[in-house]
């Protein structure tokens, strides 16, 4: 049992700019805690996205590189190939990873690049004011689908984890939630696993984290977590979709 709680040294002292109750903050902290656990201090490079997490480079206490919108997996590929001994990760939202950057995501996964991807699925474009994302749920309202997403008109949500799990390249693909203490602890274990895969040179690992956007969902932070737990999971069930260490056993 962990004794108490202290902020990890893998986060800087810069206050997060996120909206009240936005779970980007929890996802940052879990990632940083895992970096500390695996002893990555001084030996890791993160790649920040475009989106609400664009300032991630101010928050993670390690070398950081900002990528153009959606290109983080390509940038991380370059960094990892030049510095194979460094721990390299990207941190990306769903607009970044699954819309403009879908090609980079799929090909980095297909190549089995030995990087770790932290994917924040909040079903919306947060930074730009709540437009529909590839991950917006059927019926979910966004500024660009004000009557709720209609598949015939707006297309269907994309299940990134399930899709990438079909590829040969990835070593580990999981989807987790941050609804409560239990799920946050589970999310941390999944992130740890995704970094362990990189340490053991197993190739591309991604954790899709169901995150909240209270501001653009129009919900208070507590109701937003409930919505994530009860609604988002209907389209995006939690689980491990690929784990080659299980297959090897």
């Amino acid at each position: 049992m962990a004794k108490g709680f202290k902020k990890t040294k893998m986060l800087t002292d810069t206050p997060f700019h996120y909206c009240p109750g936005c779970t980007h903050g929890i996802a940052h902290r879990l990632t940083a805690e895992v970096l500390e656990e695996i002893g990555a201090e001084g030996n890791c490079v993160g790649v920040a996205p475009v989106g609400c997490a664009v300032f991630a480079y101010n928050y993670f206490n390690c070398d950081m590189q900002e990528a153009a919108h959606g290109r983080a997996p390509a940038v991380a590929t370059g960094i990892k190939r030049v510095h194979p001994d460094k721990i390299v990760f990207s941190y990306q939202g769903d607009g970044d990873l699954a819309s403009i950057g879908m090609a980079e995501t799929v090909h980095a996964a297909a190549r089995g690049e030995n990087i770790t991807v932290i994917f924040i699925n909040n079903s919306i474009y947060g930074m730009t004011g709540g437009q529909m994302a590839p991950t917006t749920l059927e019926g979910q309202k966004a500024t660009t689908c004000q009557a709720g997403r209609i598949p015939e008109l707006n297309g269907n949500p994309v299940n990134v984890a399930e899709m990438l799990a079909q590829l040969k390249g990835p070593s580990y693909i999981a989807r987790v939630g941050l609804f409560d203490l239990k799920h946050v602890m589970e999310a941390k274990r999944a992130i740890r696993k995704a970094f362990d895969m990189q340490i053991n040179k197993k190739g591309f690992a991604m954790v899709e984290i169901l995150s909240t956007c209270p501001t653009n969902w129009g919900l208070n932070p507590i109701d937003a977590l409930e919505w994530s737990k009860n609604e988002a999971t209907k389209t995006f069930p939690l689980g491990v979709f690929k784990d080659i260490t299980k297959e090897e056993e």
């Binding site: 962990a2 004794k3 108490g4 709680f5 202290k6 902020k7 986060l11 206050p15 997060f16 996120y18 109750g21 936005c22 779970t23 980007h24 903050g25 929890i26 902290r29 409560d180 203490l181 946050v184 602890m185």
Partner: peptide, 19 residues
């Protein structure tokens, strides 16, 4: 009880728990 559930759910690292 020092369970740190509060600190674990805080998105802004506001709470520290000593026990």
């Amino acid at each position: 009880i020092g369970c740190a559930a509060c600190a674990t759910m805080c998105p802004d690292c506001v709470i520290e728990v000593e026990r």
